[in-house]
């Protein structure tokens, strides 16, 4: 019995299988609840996997060895976002001005509000950088954070937390405020909630998904350009 446990603890196959199973469980609950945003499948899967790693005393590096196959697919999935964007391009083209204005305002709102709240409540510089980069897709956020002297892996964690918070509470807040337009809904989730916000938008509506994917890509670009400039203007 102990032999089996020892085997499972460092078997990439077992850890990969567990990740998929945990996600399946989360997705099952999510579907059962009619895709209620609060039952976010990413959050459920992460909580389960973290609990298993802590209980079994399994290091993250061992875990990642198995799970990196899933992680790798983020690249191809990002490329695949071109397809819903192409299908919805007529709508996107008609909204070009709205997209640019909304994107830039969203980008600056994310950066300045995060810096302000972080500074008021005494965050360290590393935390501040990660907070300011939190709304963009993780590879860009990690790159920008590293460039400014922050911690890339902490940034990835905050990016994913942001996405989960956005996907869970974003739809509820938008509906409560009466912002019930699919394009606006998706664009907001993509700008503020990055990849996980986009994933949620894709699940609920194709128009929302296309606008979210577009917002995610554009915000990554805008934040990668403006965050270093803003950071150096404020903190020298």
């Amino acid at each position: 019995m102990t032999d089996i446990w020892t085997y499972l603890q460092d078997s990439p196959l077992a850890l990969l299988t567990m990740t998929l199973a945990a996600y399946q469980f989360g997705a099952f609950l999510y579907q059962r609840a009619g895709m209620h945003p609060l039952l976010n499948p990413v959050l459920i899967a992460i909580v389960i996997v973290v609990a298993v790693l802590l209980t079994g005393d399994i290091p993250y590096a061992t875990y990642f060895e198995g799970a990196q196959i899933i992680h790798f697919l983020l690249g191809p999935a990002t490329v695949a976002l071109a397809i819903p964007l192409y299908r919805q391009f007529d709508r996107v083209r008609k909204s070009a001005i709205a997209i640019v204005v909304s994107l830039l305002t969203g980008c600056f709102t994310a950066i300045f509000s995060a810096l302000a709240i972080g500074a008021v409540f005494g965050a360290s510089n590393e935390t501040l950088i990660s907070l300011a980069a939190k709304s963009i897709t993780s590879p860009v956020a990690m790159g920008v954070a590293e460039q400014l002297g922050g911690l890339p892996s902490l940034t990835a964690v905050l990016v994913i937390s942001t996405g989960i918070i956005g996907a869970m509470f974003g739809p509820i807040v938008l509906n409560a405020l009466g912002l019930r337009d699919w394009a606006a809904h998706g664009f907001g989730l993509g700008t503020g909630g990055g990849g996980i916000g986009t994933a949620r938008a894709i699940q609920v509506n194709e128009t929302a998904g296309a606008f979210a994917g577009l917002a995610m890509g554009l915000n990554a670009l805008a934040t990668a350009i403006f965050l270093p400039i803003i950071w150096h203007l404020i903190f020298g």
């Binding site: 709102t109 994310a110 509000s113 709240i117 939190k134 942001t162 405020l177 700008t191 503020g192 606008f211």
Partner: peptide, 25 residues
């Protein structure tokens, strides 16, 4: 700062960009 920053800044960003998008289209 992390908890408040994540929640407030994320939801504010989502609402601001969605509201502008809605207003301009």
């Amino acid at each position: 700062p992390i908890g408040l920053g994540l929640v407030i800044s994320t939801l504010l960003t989502i609402v601001v960009s969605a509201a502008i998008m809605r207003r301009l289209t």
